[in-house]
C-alpha cells in the first residue's frame, strides 16, 4: 500500500517536474521575443511568463550589439568655479580601473535612455548630485555626448576615431544644489533647471 502510494507520488512529482521544465524553457525562449518588432502572439507569451522571468532575473533580451551597433553614449559634466576655468570631465573615463567598474560607468551612460522620462530625470539628478559632491560644488551642468564610430573609409582618408566631428553634445540640464547643500537634512529636493 505504502509502496504503491510512494510510486504514485513519485509519478506525480515526475510529471510536475516535467511540466515545470517545459514551462521554464518556454519562459527562457519567450523573454527576448517581445523586443520590437514582435507579434501580438509573442507579446502575449512574453507577458504570460513575465512574473516568473522577473522573479528569477531571466527577463533579458540578449540583443547583444544588435540590431545595429552605433554611437556610444557618454555623459559630460562641467562645474563652474569662481575665478578659475570650470572643472570638466566625462564618464565613462577610460582611466577607471578595474575594467569591470569602467563598464559599470559605461552602462550608466548607455542604458539610462531605456527608462521612462521621470526615471531618467531622477537618475540624471543623482549623477549630477554625486559628481558635484566630489568637487564640493553646488552647481553642475550635464551634457549627453554621442560618439559615432568612424567609418573604414574615413580612417583610410586620414580621419581618426576621436575626431571632434564624431562627437555630438546635447544639453541635459543645469543643476543647482545650493538648497540641498545648505540644508542637508531638509526633505526639499534640489532645483532642477532645464
Amino acid at each position: 500500500m505504502i509502496v504503491g502510494l510512494k510510486k504514485l507520488l513519485g509519478k506525480i512529482g515526475y510529471a510536475v517536474l516535467s511540466l515545470w521544465l517545459v514551462f521554464h524553457v518556454f519562459a527562457v525562449f519567450i523573454s527576448p521575443a517581445a523586443m520590437p518588432p514582435s507579434s501580438p502572439l509573442l507579446e502575449d507569451g512574453y507577458r504570460f511568463a513575465l512574473p516568473y522571468n522577473e522573479a528569477l532575473f531571466l527577463n533579458h533580451g540578449y540583443h547583444y550589439f544588435a540590431p545595429d551597433p552605433g554611437a556610444s553614449t557618454l555623459i559630460a559634466w562641467e562645474i563652474p568655479r569662481d575665478g578659475e576655468a570650470p572643472a570638466v570631465g566625462r564618464f565613462p573615463d577610460v582611466s577607471v580601473c578595474p575594467r569591470l567598474l569602467y563598464h559599470r560607468y559605461f552602462m550608466l551612460a548607455e542604458n539610462l535612455w531605456a527608462f521612462d522620462d521621470e526615471t531618467q530625470q531622477d537618475i540624471l539628478k543623482a549623477y549630477a548630485r554625486n559628481l558635484a559632491a566630489q568637487f564640493g560644488a553646488e552647481r553642475i551642468s550635464l551634457n549627453r555626448v554621442s560618439h559615432e564610430p568612424s567609418s573604414i573609409m574615413r580612417l583610410q582618408a586620414g580621419g581618426k576615431l576621436d575626431d571632434p566631428e564624431t562627437f555630438q553634445e546635447e544639453v541635459l540640464g543645469h543643476f543647482d544644489f545650493s538648497i540641498d547643500l545648505d540644508a542637508a537634512s531638509s526633505s526639499a529636493g534640489p532645483k532642477f533647471l532645464r
Binding site: V28, G61, Y62, H63, F65, P67
Partner: peptide, 16 residues
C-alpha cells in the same frame, strides 16, 4: 536561447 536571439536580433540590423 541566448545565441538564437543574439544571432537573429542581429539580422534585424542592416549593418550586420
Amino acid at each position: 536561447a541566448i545565441y538564437f536571439w543574439s544571432g537573429f536580433s542581429k539580422l534585424k540590423g542592416p549593418t550586420w
